[in-house]
Amino acid sequence: MCKDCGCNVKGHSHDHAHDHGHHHEHDHEHPHVERKTIELEVKVLAENDAHAEANRSWLSQHGVMAINLISSPGTGKTYLLERTLERLRGRVQCAVITGDQCTDNDARRLMGKGAMVKQIETINSCHLDAARVGALLPEVAGNGVKLLFIENIGNLVCPAAFDLGEHFKVALLSTTEGEDKPVKYPTLFSMAPVVVLTKMDLVPYLDWSLPKCRQYLNTIRPGVFVFELSAKTGAGLDAWIEYLEKLIKP
């Protein structure tokens, strides 16, 4: 076998002789950069999740139940909260953190109903995050508050991705939005164990089917707890209020 190339062909040679009158200088130090791949499993929202966990333990320590209300803009989150605060006044100490891109209109609507209310203006952000909510907790939810409503930015997509440290999410869906929102926006509806159907008083004027809507809701989240109500007429509000009162019972 040829010792140079390892082949089995006999009778050939390899000419290796060559002149090398110079030598390669290498008198400087330069970093040799190596590229490596690191395998990981780092949550992208780890920072937000850490804030959310801190919020959750703060809430537990202070005996506060926190609900994150999420819906499209105009579903009636603020209207439902107005009616809810009025009904719970003097019975359950409530507080509200409400988020909007701009204005404190919602906070002003909710003030004077016996609850501490704080507005977060997110300006360019489409969701509330746990750090922003956490910064307000001692001021808003200290002092004997039992029930904290976090009214998220009107948006069915983004708020679902950010844990705020709430105990659970409640999705709101108005009859005017159509029955199939749950299947169109499955992220939120798969994460919300409770859904409130709002504007039920408008059903006679709409081509909207309650059985269809409930079917869609159950497809996305089997066994979801659904309230049907109208904040305007007050129909169905009793069940919602009773439910909230039971939530905070020790």
Partner: peptide, 26 residues
């Protein structure tokens, strides 16, 4: 599902530096 995480990343390190963790050479 709801996954949202970094599965892997490439990093440029100076040769000879020890890369901690589960590191694989490319």
């Amino acid at each position: 599902g709801r996954e949202l995480y970094i599965k892997s990343m490439e990093v440029d390190v100076e040769a000879g530096e020890d890369v901690r963790g589960e590191a694989l050479n490319v």
